[in-house]
């Protein structure tokens, strides 16, 4: 992994069209400004995790397995 040290107000470029600006730094988080072409999706990594999880969750489950799960939840 490439590591780059930057201060607030500085930026880096990825290729010709993507620029990432360090907008604000606090002790616990940084705010990034991202300039990228419209066709480049920019999402937080957690959104990507949720996308993949949604796709897995959309797979079919049998009604019997659901009834079993519901029963187990009711019995707790």
């Amino acid at each position: 992994m490439l590591l780059v040290r930057r201060r607030a107000g500085e930026s880096i470029r990825i290729g010709e069209e993507i620029e990432i600006q360090i907008t604000e730094i606090t002790p616990t988080r940084v705010t990034l400004g991202i300039l990228a072409p419209r066709e480049v999706p920019v999402v937080r990594s957690e959104v990507r995790l949720t996308r993949d999880q949604n796709r897995a969750a959309a797979g079919p489950a049998s009604l019997e397995s659901l009834a079993k799960l519901a029963g187990a939840l009711r019995l707790r």
Binding site: E46, L49, T50, Q53, A56, A57, G59, L69
Partner: peptide, 28 residues
């Protein structure tokens, strides 16, 4: 949202579906 697999069941607590019951608008 639950993912039901043979290995077990997991829930996505990182990205829950939030429903505004007044507007009926929802978001994950």
């Amino acid at each position: 949202i639950l993912t039901i697999e043979e290995s077990g069941v997991t829930a996505n607590l990182l990205g829950p579906v939030v429903i505004n019951l007044t507007t009926r608008l929802a978001v994950q």
